[in-house]
Design a binder for these strands. Structure first.
Lengths: 147, 147
DNA sequence: ACTGTCGTAACTATAATCGTTACGACAGAT
DNA sequence: ATCTGTCGTAACGATTATAGTTACGACAGT
């Protein structure tokens, strides 16, 4: 699949900010998060920008600038993140219009559209069941390497 | 999303072959299917090749060559097709390993892996509920254009 | 004014998918 | 035995999405 890691990186960033704030800090910088995720700060800023538009995080500019959560991790789900960072539908239709004079070419798109919508709805439901609070909890529950 | 249309085209091809066989024909050619799907015959042959490896269709070579169903449409589900034509996981991990000295960087992958597996399992379950027989039925049920 | 960070544009790199051309392999028909 | 139509598959280019990188102005607190 066109496996993209946008959801993964976005969840990583949110968990990082959440934990950092619990440790008493006000804001997290894109550079700190990028170091943890092993990527470029601009990639983080771009993704967090989309999360900001969705109302999940806030940003502060100027000196002492950075990112903070706009809501509790409890109230955020993977569905919120998914909708914020994944634009298109899960499955695409034909890139070109099928042959409308053919019975199958004519009926295939409405048929699949309907089926795909139901499947996506189930996917959304599953994503909505996972809060970012749970993600952070699972992260912290991961076994630590032995010394 | 990296919306790809492989599942759509594969379902289109199977529905087309199924209907064609019900009309009394032995085999369907990649060119006929490509005309209906408005794409290139090689694209169809490539996809059907993957469906053949999955045991969903058979191909005949030589004169009078073409494709036929290996099983009834009743016994095929979108999950069979999905597994045949979609290689990777639904959501990808980081492209580079996150910073293991960071608590979040260390725990994020096992946490998400587990969560993603559950979600994919639900998706598979939904895909398995839709037979290709139902797809063809929905296709034929699509409203015809008025004359 | 100085500083650190955001916000964003611009460009390149990488990869997946798709479209296209080409050609050998195959098997039935003549 | 040759002819014919189609598969099987390699090779290449086009398109698109994502990611990485550089650069620089905007901003706000010190």
């Amino acid at each position: 699949m066109s496996a993209n890691s946008r959801l993964t990186i976005a969840a990583h960033a949110l968990a990082w900010i959440g934990l950092y704030q619990r440790q008493g800090h006000e804001v997290a910088t894109s550079e700190q998060i990028a170091t943890s995720a092993n990527t470029n700060p601009v990639v983080i800023r771009r993704l967090l920008g989309e999360l900001r538009r969705a109302g999940l995080v806030e940003s502060r500019r100027g000196a002492g600038a950075g990112w903070s959560l706009a809501r509790e991790l409890e109230s955020m789900t993977l569905l919120d993140v998914y909708e914020a960072v994944e634009p298109g539908p899960l499955f695409a239709m034909h890139r070109t219009t099928p042959h409308q004079e053919c019975v199958v070419g004519h009926g295939i798109q409405p048929a699949l559209q309907n089926i795909y919508e139901n499947i996506e709805e189930t996917l959304r439901h599953e994503l909505a069941r996972v809060t970012l609070e749970k993600v952070l909890g699972d992260v912290l529950a991961a076994p630590r390497r032995p010394l």
